[in-house]
Design a protein around this nucleic acid. Structure first.
Lengths: 345, 345
DNA sequence: AATAGTTGCACAACCGATTGCGCATTCATA
DNA sequence: TATGAATGCGCAATCGGTTGTGCAACTATT
């Protein structure tokens, strides 16, 4: 590595230093030198020189000429829960493994920011754009298709691009089953099982509600409409919604299906503040957080299978699906201690 | 917005459509048209056309010519705790506010990945590189300076670039003070206060240990070396370290200073698994997580002041500090319920 | 009417890579 | 020794913007 350069080294500089030509240097550095019948000797010399001088190829120039940026883009609502942060981490790791550059932008569940971020990514000519949990994936998909760039949906499905999502309905059914099993085991009446959190207008929440209903139906139980409270995700909303529910019913629900860790935060806070014993109430959460699991080992959590979801995404990046609007569901799994053996109170 | 184009529209296309020239179109689109004395009328026409046709500037071409990418880079150890995820979110939000594109790459506290990510960022010619929590910030700073790109350190300080960090020592002193106050209030003997988590070789942990010691000293208390256990951050490490500590001492510590939420996870898990009552033991955590706060309202948490830290960073991006190795400390604050009034058990 | 200044725009040379093509050597074959 | 093929490399155009410079046409001044 040489001392600081005033200007960055280019292939023209290297060509001069190596007494060769820019095209040869280029071929050597991007690995096409064999096809161009550059001698091994010259290639070595140029590579050594580049190494010694600390050359790094200008990706803007390469991208411009190749008309491929070498960048993969992803937009994401937030980083601050385990689900989305692991999506970002695994996505980046896989991209890095392939020598592609991944850029992730978080858009705060805000349609304007989503559009703005997508516009930026398209301006930088990302090769694919992954829309994760977009409020309206189809808007982004259309921007991409207008720009001639392929897009993929993750977490929330769209109708204009291939989507990988969790098997929300079946997952919710299983989680609900686990709750009902515990109620049975403890011989507690299975009415007043509360579904709380999420947005009624988003696909995942609707599917999870269906699964919740279905689990009840299969046992001949009915679900009361007032037991389904998609009060949005925010902790404060969940907290207020639980308070309202308890006021109306006059007592705690027998069990709760909490639709995300962020909602869980509000639920737990309300229970704590109200002096309720966390262990009196059977809880499941459609999401996973190891810190929550540590604090409440009897909490049933659904862990979405992020590695598989990302793997499917990359499959599609490698070979685009025949059906451009295909929707693939990946099963999440229950983690922890589903039967709720007592640990410590 | 027009129908899908086979190839992206360029300023040459627009020039043809507007019966003008590429240089004029360029000037209009990048806002320099006034200086170039383009008539308002022509500018309007070109802008309308660009809008109608869905033109978007090819940032690679722009970056190549301008020799400025318009990108700000950040490397980050992880996304999956509240501290780092808020760093990423606030950094991106501020960049977006300024119309700059922020790209964040997470490197898993792995020096190789850090170097690799930095190399990528430099190849894409980021205008500044922010190194957050890098295992060795100086390595990255030197890569940057060799490439003629300015770098800044966040969270962990370096000696080769300006650094913004938390006031770890003073923050730790205050957190320790809060722990000792509670012990006093409960009339519990103040020996066997355990410092656990973090890496002895990293600056922040060393500083926090100093603060921990200092708080004791000021009360005339001594700190036993065996009460300081920088067993690394990982939950499993903390869990094992606590187990070893308790084995040796024959009982639980009277209070614990837990050096991060990730370590806290291990601590809490161990306590739960061992059937210990979480409330018997006074705990502080040098980090903040609202879910943990919900589960354990009496846990004392230090919240690092990320918005201020990021703001200082951008100050330096705007006007580089005179002293290129300046180190700025931002005070974190205790959140929650420092005096530990009982809420719910 | 001649001159100077202003207005409005286009030309063309870049930025740093990539890549089709062509030319000079060397080597093998007849 | 002539011919064709293989080897090894450089030329120059190109990607899509940016920007210094130049040149008409028009306006104001004397």
């Amino acid at each position: 590595m040489s001392i600081e350069q005033s200007r960055k080294l280019t292939i023209y500089d290297l060509a001069r230093l190596a007494k060769s030509s820019p095209s040869t240097v280029s071929a050597v550095l991007n690995g096409t030198w064999q096809q161009r019948r550059i001698s091994r000797k010259l290639a070595r010399r140029i590579l050594d020189l580049a190494e010694r001088e600390g050359y790094s190829t200008n990706m803007q120039a390469r991208a411009l000429r190749r008309d491929r940026s070498g960048i993969l883009g992803m937009i994401l609502p937030l980083y601050d829960n385990r689900y989305f942060s692991s999506i970002a981490q695994i996505f980046e790791a896989e991209a890095r493994r392939r020598g592609i550059f991944a850029i992730v932008s978080c858009t705060n569940r805000d349609p304007d920011q989503e559009r703005e971020a997508a516009r930026m990514m398209l301006a930088y000519r990302v090769e694919h754009l992954i829309c994760t949990g977009a409020t309206n994936p189809d808007v982004i998909a259309e921007m991409c298709s207008a720009a001639g760039i392929s897009s993929l949906n993750l977490d929330l499905p769209g109708t204009a691009a291939p989507s990988v999502i969790s098997a929300n309905r079946e997952g919710a059914r299983r989680l609900t089953d686990a709750l009902l099993d515990r109620l049975e085991a403890r011989k507690i009446d299975s009415t007043r099982v509360l579904f709380i959190g999420g947005r009624a207008e988003d696909h995942n929440t609707r599917e999870r509600i269906e699964g919740f209903r279905h689990a009840h139906e299969r046992r001949g139980l009915i679900t009361n409409p007032t037991d389904i409270v998609p009060c949005d995700y925010a902790a404060e909303k969940a907290q207020a919604a639980l308070e309202a529910y308890v006021d109306r019913e006059g007592r705690l629900p027998a069990a709760m299906f909490v639709n995300s860790t962020i909602s869980l935060e509000g639920i737990v806070r309300w229970l704590r503040l109200g002096g309720h014993n966390m262990n009196e109430i059977i809880m499941g959460c459609f999401d996973w957080d190891p810190l929550a699991a540590a604090f409440h080992p009897r909490l049933i959590m659904m862990r979405q299978d992020v590695p598989t979801m990302i793997a499917r995404l990359f499959d599609w990046i490698d070979t685009p699906p025949e059906d451009p609007t295909v929707r693939l569901e990946v099963m999440p799994e229950i983690v922890g201690n589903p039967m709720g053996n007592r640990v410590a109170e």
